[in-house]
Design a protein around this nucleic acid. Structure first.
Length: 490
RNA sequence: CUGGGUGUGGCGCAGCCUGGUAGCGUACUUGCAUGGGGUGCAAGUGGUCGGAUGUUCGAAUCAUCUCACCCAGACCA
């Protein structure tokens, strides 16, 4: 049984890798554990960036930029933070190269050793709080609501395109507040922003919840997350929002004078999503024919493939669809007329399916006579012949329909694969099936750890607004008040 | 670091056991035909077989060493 699962997961990994590479999104680079994001993949990231950036600004945040390098001493100021990241940091120790005395290229100049090593940021809490210290004096300086778009480096042992690479792109929000209540509200607000973005843009249904102490961000008081189910039933953490309490304020001595004239430590939050979201997109919606992209994030939403024999035919076809192209563009829809003469229609059909273009129109000489066009949708692969007249608004509706269809499809799949387990035997059987398990847990890190050790399943989250229910821990039999979500995860 | 595996035109691989002129698929170039679901035929371009040393008349093939990568662990908010 375990072997079957392994095979299934391996096949799935292969499928995923092929999609990323053949779909033209990214490729492995020659640098260990790093990837090259290709223009098509980057275009998706840019769309995500634009949408998220607007949501952040609508909730009162502004952008700034902080250094890539963090002095080593900063990282050690918050004890649990350094413990969480120490094992995966890239460290700069020297600042100069010299010619190899033996004539073999260049070597690191041993005389150019840095006084204090620099860490390539794995996340920016420390450098940012070291800066905030100087920005915050009074309650009038609060709240401080800043976001940064950046790259970070985590020297992971094992990497996978988009899901876990040594370097990745992300945004990280870092906010400072006068009260714990306000900071918690901010944490929850940003979690809602992420959930909203995941569901309405990525068409990815997510479970909002809190992490257990074991899974918490290093240095956080509370970690909130959104968890999504991939098509192999494994969980993917799609975003996190942390309430940091006064941990970083105390570590970096960030105090403000309140209205009563008393010094107080500020309360902090941090929250982030990364290029991992692109991985989530791929694994949630795509099929054996290639990517299936949600129209709202597809770099190209509509492609028109002409079918013709001569150059005259081609220009007649273009003339015929030119008003449609103008109409679609005026509606803000990205459209391409593929007049590449070196590739055949069948090749193009397959290629655009691989790349997940939501809507494909095919038009040939027959259509020219009949005033029709063939409309194909990527999500269901349905094709139909339609009157060209008035097709513009039909396509607009179709794009919306595809967006909601793939969301509903993913949600139906997810809901059908969350199962309650009420005994340890049941749990052990179920964890070998794809999907999430909803089960009672006694609330102890020891039980959580033991379950992970035995089944590789972790507690993905304790869902927010979880219905309370008397029960017994699936492992220890101790009393429990609510069910939590267990799954194997990426 | 532990255990497996792989390095051969851009990409994917065979050849290695049993040493004897480096091959296949794909991509690329050119020509003709074709064009409503990854075109067909023909002719071409392109490789110090990961590296070093050794054995041999002769090494992609055998031996020793070495490097790189992949998979499974350890790691992973």
């Amino acid at each position: 049984m375990a072997k079957d699962i392994a095979t299934r997961v391996n096949d799935y990994s292969q499928w995923y890798n092929d999609l990323v590479i053949k779909g033209g999104l990214a490729d492995y680079s020659s640098v260990r554990g790093c990837m090259v994001i290709k223009p098509y993949g980057f275009a998706i990231w840019e769309k995500m960036h634009d949408a998220l950036d607007k949501m952040f600004k609508d909730t009162g945040h502004v952008n700034a930029y902080f250094p890539l390098f963090i002095p080593k001493s900063f990282l050690s100021k918050e004890a649990s933070h350094v413990e969480g990241f120490a094992k995966e940091c890239a460290v700069v120790t020297h600042y100069r190269l010299i010619n190899d005395p033996n004539g073999k290229g260049v070597i690191v100049d041993p005389d150019a050793k840095l006084e204090e090593e620099l860490i390539v940021r794995p996340t920016s809490e420390t450098i940012i709080w070291n800066t905030y210290k100087n920005w915050i004096q009074s309650y009038r300086d609060l709240p401080l609501l800043i976001n940064q778009w950046a790259n970070v480096v985590r020297w992971e042992m094992r990497t996978r395109l988009f899901l876990r690479t040594a370097e990745f792109l992300w945004q990280e929000g870092h906010t400072a507040h006068a009260t714990a209540k306000e900071a918690v509200e901010e944490t929850e607000k940003m979690l809602d922003v992420y959930a909203d973005f995941a569901e309405n843009w990525l068409a990815l249904p997510v479970i909002k919840g809190k992490k257990t102490a074991n899974e918490r961000f290093a240095g956080a008081v509370d970690t909130y997350c959104i968890e999504a189910m991939m098509q192999d039933g494994q969980a993917l953490q799609a975003g996190t929002s942390h309430f940091l309490g006064q941990n970083f304020a105390k570590a970096f001595d960030v105090q403000f004078l309140n209205k009563e004239g008393k010094q107080e430590y500020v309360y902090a939050t941090s929250w982030g999503v990364s290029t991992r979201l692109i991985g989530a997109l791929i694994m949630a919606h795509s099929d054996d024919d290639g990517l299936v992209l949600p129209p709202k994030l597809a770099p190209l939403q509509v492609v028109i493939v002409p079918i013709y024999k001569s150059d005259e035919d081609l220009s007649r076809l273009f003339e015929k669809v030119e008003p449609l192209i103008k109409e679609l563009k005026s509606k803000g829809i990205t459209v391409k007329f593929d007049d590449d003469t070196t590739k055949r229609p069948g090749f193009k059909f397959a290629e655009y399916e691989l790349r997940g273009v939501p809507v494909r129109l095919a038009i040939g000489m027959r259509d020219l006579e009949n005033g029709t066009v063939e409309v194909a949708r990527r999500d269901t692969k349905e094709k139909s012949s339609q009157q060209l007249e008035g097709i513009g608004s039909h396509i607009e509706n179709l794009l919306n329909d595809i967006q909601s269809n793939i969301f509903n499809r993913a949600k139906t799949f997810r809901d059908a694969n969350i199962r309650p387990a009420n005994s340890w035997d049941e749990f052990k059987t179920m964890i070998e099936q794809p999907g999430f398990i909803s089960a009672h847990w006694d609330g102890t890190p020891e039980t959580e750890e033991k379950i992970k050790e035995l089944t590789k399943a972790t507690i993905r989250c304790i869902p927010l607004n979880n219905p309370l229910e008397e029960g017994k821990c699936v492992f220890s039999g101790q009393p429990s008040k609510e069910r939590v979500i267990f799954a194997r995860a990426y």
